[in-house]
């Protein structure tokens, strides 16, 4: 049984801390180094982005922070817990309670309604019906989609689908939201709309947002930009 308290944010000054993080992938006889000696920290409520060209290591870093992968060497602590020390069960628990994911392709479950897509994560937390209803309606209200709660993903526009994905990530009020190219499939207007929504949630709920992007439109919203190239930090700037 996992104790919820073990993930309490107060254990560390930083919500995310990476020290000497290196990640290698085996390629044939040798290996490909995706991340090399990354040292980074993120505090609660940051609105930051990993930017860089394809293959620079942005997604790999998000994977490790999201406890979907483990580093080859070095350490990454999320909410005070070392990611590589977590069991599969603990990793799943961490993702379920404290980390929200937003994908480039929305990845909504097509047979379920907007409401049910957002509700799903709370079902995994075994919350009761009233709690779920309250939280889902609140999350849909944040993204302005309460009217569309009974719609299916196929009936939504790209922008609406991504807003549902934001509501799904936010409904559990996670400490961290990891967004991989969230605006890549959206036009300019919708991109600005969802970024404004995320920015608002960041300031109201103090949720840490960490983006992986090479979209200029996203970058203009970021408070902190970490540039990666060939798996190394090239630049780390606060605006």
């Amino acid at each position: 049984m996992i104790n919820v308290k073990q993930f309490k944010r107060t254990e560390s000054k930083y919500i995310i801390r990476a020290e000497g993080l290196t990640k290698d992938y085996p390629v044939g006889e040798g290996h490909f180094r995706a991340l090399s000696d990354i040292n980074l920290t993120f505090s609660e409520g940051e609105f930051a982005g990993l930017v860089g060209p394809s293959g620079s290591g942005k997604t790999t870093l998000l994977n490790i922070i999201g406890s979907l992968d483990t580093p080859t060497s070095g350490s990454v602590a999320v909410l005070g817990r070392e990611v590589s020390a977590l069991t599969a069960k603990q990793s799943a628990f961490l993702r379920n309670r404290h980390i929200g994911f937003i994908f480039q392709s929305y990845n909504l479950l097509p047979v379920y309604t907007v409401y049910e897509n957002v509700e799903f994560t709370l079902l995994l937390q075994k919350k009761n019906r009233e709690e779920r209803h309250k939280a889902v309606m609140e999350a849909l209200d944040w993204v302005g989609l309460t009217e569309k709660k009974d719609a299916r993903p196929a009936q939504l526009s790209g922008g609406e689908s991504q807003r549902v994905a934001i509501a799904r990530a936010m409904v559990k009020r996670p400490a961290i939201v990891l967004a991989d190219e969230p605006s890549a499939n959206l036009d300019a207007e919708n991109s600005h709309h969802i970024l404004q929504t995320m920015q608002q949630l960041n300031s109201e709920l103090k949720t840490t947002f960490l983006f992986a992007t090479h979209d200029e439109k996203v970058m203009q919203y970021l408070q902190r930009v970490i540039s990666l190239r060939d798996g190394k930090i090239e630049k780390d700037t606060n605006s």
């Binding site: 999201g66 979907l68 599969a88 069960k89 799943a92 628990f93 961490l94 993702r95 379920n96 309670r97 980390i99 994911f101 994908f103 990845n107 479950l109 799903f120 994560t121 995994l124 799904r168």
Partner: peptide, 16 residues
């Protein structure tokens, strides 16, 4: 495949 991936990312255990 996608659905299972999303569910795993959202914190559903493989066993679940």
């Amino acid at each position: 495949y996608n659905e299972f991936g999303v569910r795993l990312a959202m914190g559903e255990e493989k066993r679940q």
